[in-house]
């Protein structure tokens, strides 16, 4: 999930790559992050909250495992099903949490809103005020999404930002930016690429990158 080379074909193989993280006991002594002041402060906070009874022993470790298990592959599977099953797609647009639950995905209370790319509209998501993101479906957001440059520029010059991501859209397509300012978390439903007729859901899901579900990429076959 946090592999810096986050290509589409990594989506299904993200689990199990994150070895060596602390599960509440000391990480390996050569882990450079362990010695830093901030790392110790985080540990101090956790220990104090456990002592205060706010956190149960092992609760943080279990939550880390839970978070690690969520990768963009979950979102890609939802998109692939929407591409192949019109009834599911309709349910996804109308009641996203229930549709995700059909696939065994628990959004944990996230109010998801799905915006569909069409021949006339390309959607792009940003949270200018902080970095709101559908973490319970896509996992941890990428650093660039949280960056001040993205947060500042996505609303005022989306096409310039898209160009940096290698996406150029004709003037006739409306670029619609969504600023995630309140309680909703957004999923872009990208357009199904041409030339994928008859493909299985699994094969289609491999085309759906994390960035295409944020709106800074377009899937291609």
């Amino acid at each position: 999930m946090h592999d810096p080379h986050d290509h589409a074909h990594d989506q299904g193989h993200d689990h199990g790559h994150d070895h060596g993280h602390s599960h509440g006991h000391a990480p390996p002594p050569d882990d450079p992050s362990f010695r830093s002041e901030q790392a110790l402060a985080a540990r101090a906070l956790r220990l104090l909250l456990e002592e205060a009874g706010v956190l149960a022993p092992g609760e943080v470790a279990r939550q880390i495992d839970r978070m690690d298990a969520i990768t963009p592959a979950l979102g890609a599977a939802v998109v692939a099903r929407a591409w192949t099953d019109p009834g599911f797609k309709a349910r996804l647009m109308a009641t996203p949490a229930a549709a995700c639950a059909e696939m065994g995905i628990d959004l944990q209370g996230t109010v998801l809103h799905v915006v569909e790319n069409t021949a006339s509209v390309h959607n792009m998501i940003v949270c200018t005020l902080c970095s709101c993101y559908p973490k319970t479906l896509l996992g941890i957001p990428p650093d660039w999404y949280k960056s001040f440059a993205y947060r500042s520029r996505a609303v005022i010059e989306p096409r310039s930002v898209l160009a940096e991501f290698g996406v150029t859209l004709p003037d006739g397509i409306e670029v619609r930016v969504h600023d995630s300012t309140a309680d909703l978390r957004y999923l872009v439903l990208p357009a199904r690429p041409a030339g994928t007729e008859g493909w299985s859901e699994e094969r289609l899901a491999a085309l759906v990158t994390r960035d295409s579900m944020i709106g800074t990429a377009v899937p291609a076959a």
Partner: peptide, 15 residues
């Protein structure tokens, strides 16, 4: 550039 979250960052997120 994308960085892999340090263990302490995951801890803070989890807390």
């Amino acid at each position: 550039g994308e960085h892999v979250l340090a263990p302490w960052e995951k801890e803070v997120d989890a807390i």
